[in-house]
Computed example of a mutant assay.
Amino acid sequence: MMDPRKITDSFTVSPQIEVEDISAIADAGYRSILCNRPDNEEIGQCGCDAIETAAKAAGLAYRAVPITSGQVSQTDLADFRAALDEMPAPILAYCRTGTRCTMLWSIAQMDHMEPAEIVAAAAEAGYDMSGLVAQMTRG
Rank of each mutant, 00 (worst) to 15 (best):
I43P: 06
L60Y: 10
E41I: 06
I25N: 01
A108N: 02
G70I: 09
A57D: 15
A58S: 14
C46N: 07
R81L: 03
W105L: 05
R96A: 13
M87K: 09
I67L: 04
A78W: 02
H112R: 15
Q71D: 12
F80M: 06
Q71P: 00
N36W: 12
A78V: 12
M103P: 00
E52F: 06
I33W: 01
L34W: 04
P88N: 10
R81E: 11
A93I: 03
C48Y: 04
A82M: 08
Y94P: 00
L104H: 06
E114C: 02
Q45F: 03
C101H: 08
A83S: 12
M110K: 08
I33K: 03
C101G: 02
R37M: 11
L60A: 08
P66M: 05
D49Y: 10
S69F: 13
V65R: 02
C46M: 13
G98Q: 05
G59D: 07
N36Y: 11
Q71V: 08
S106H: 08
P66Y: 10
A50L: 13
M113Q: 13
E114Q: 14
A64L: 07
E52M: 15
T102G: 03
R100S: 07
M103T: 14
T99D: 02
P66C: 07
R63A: 15
L60H: 09
G29V: 11
E41N: 03
M103E: 14
S106P: 01
G44F: 08
A58Q: 11
S73P: 08
M113I: 00
Y94K: 01
I51Y: 09
A50E: 14
W105N: 04
S69C: 04
T68K: 13
G47Q: 15
C101Q: 06
I51G: 01
F80L: 07
P90S: 05
D85W: 00
A26R: 15
F80I: 09
R81K: 15
A82T: 14
T102Q: 07
D111G: 03
I43R: 12
A64E: 12
S32P: 07
W105R: 07
L34I: 06
T97E: 01
R81W: 00
L84S: 02
S73C: 06
R63D: 00
D76F: 09
I33V: 15
G59M: 10
P38R: 07
Q71E: 14
V65Q: 00
G59W: 12
Y30K: 09
A108T: 06
L77C: 03
A93D: 00
P90K: 04
A64F: 10
V65H: 01
K56P: 00
